[in-house]
Design a binder for these strands. Structure first.
Lengths: 126, 126
DNA sequence: ATTATTGCAAAGATTTTGCATCACC
DNA sequence: GGTGATGCAAAATCTTTGCAATAAT
């Protein structure tokens, strides 16, 4: 049985309200502004918990660290090879979710896609 | 200018021929059977190189380690919450690639999606 | 000849964990 | 009161890197 905690609530809200894709220590430093005593271990424990719950997504952005995304509405990511900038891609994905549903029972808790290339901004710098 | 090496060739082929999603050290132990002297650093260096080239994909399977996938034909992954098993989902994704293409110029080098849930096998064990 | 790549080992970075204490139910 | 969650720090894990030697062009 899980008990509520201020720390977990703050982490969940922090991720829900931001639109970037922070790592664990970025979340840690952000939360510390409101709750200076929070520990990094607690942030890691709760991020893992929230990913398992399906409240947040875990992303691999290719830099070796785990990134997190509070936007659970299924969407995709475009990552620029040159500047590293990440753009969210929202689109109809009914078809793909139906296909995924064939593989499981119950709700699907995570869903995220990455594309890598040269973004339009970097392209125009030539 | 890049030079060819046996080590890199073996790593690329190893990933192209297998259909699981190994971590760096799994690739390392696999290659060591043919080339016992290869070092872990070399495997890491080449995996990173191959990801950047777009020859292989980097996957985040939620266990904290980076996984690799030699199947570059765009596809999706279903990951069972209970047994950890991974199933590939192949389907038409013309629409989604077109959408991603709006964000960039040149080729898109990576593309991979994850879904998490309870797989049919685990479901049937109740 | 030049320089990319390697093997090795050490260093760096990230993430997990043991434990005493605290807070929720 | 019982137990889930925390803070802290140490440990474990994963990945990168410096450097001398080797191999590819």
């Amino acid at each position: 049985m899980t008990k509520r905690s201020l720390q977990r609530d703050l982490i969940r809200e922090n991720l829900a309200h931001r639109h970037d894709h922070p790592t664990a220590d970025m979340v840690y430093y952000s939360i510390r502004q409101e709750l200076p005593n929070i520990s990094l271990g607690t942030v890691y424990r709760n991020l893992k918990f929230l990913v398992e719950q399906g409240d947040i997504l875990s992303l691999n952005l290719g830099d070796g660290r785990e990134h997190f995304d509070g936007q659970i509405k299924p969407h995709y990511h475009f990552i620029c090879n040159q500047c590293g900038n990440i753009e969210d891609i929202f689109m109809d994905e009914l078809q793909i979710c139906e296909e995924a549903a064939k593989h499981c029972s119950g709700k699907i808790t995570g869903h995220s896609t990455y594309f890598y290339g040269l973004c339009n901004q970097c392209k125009n710098k030539h």
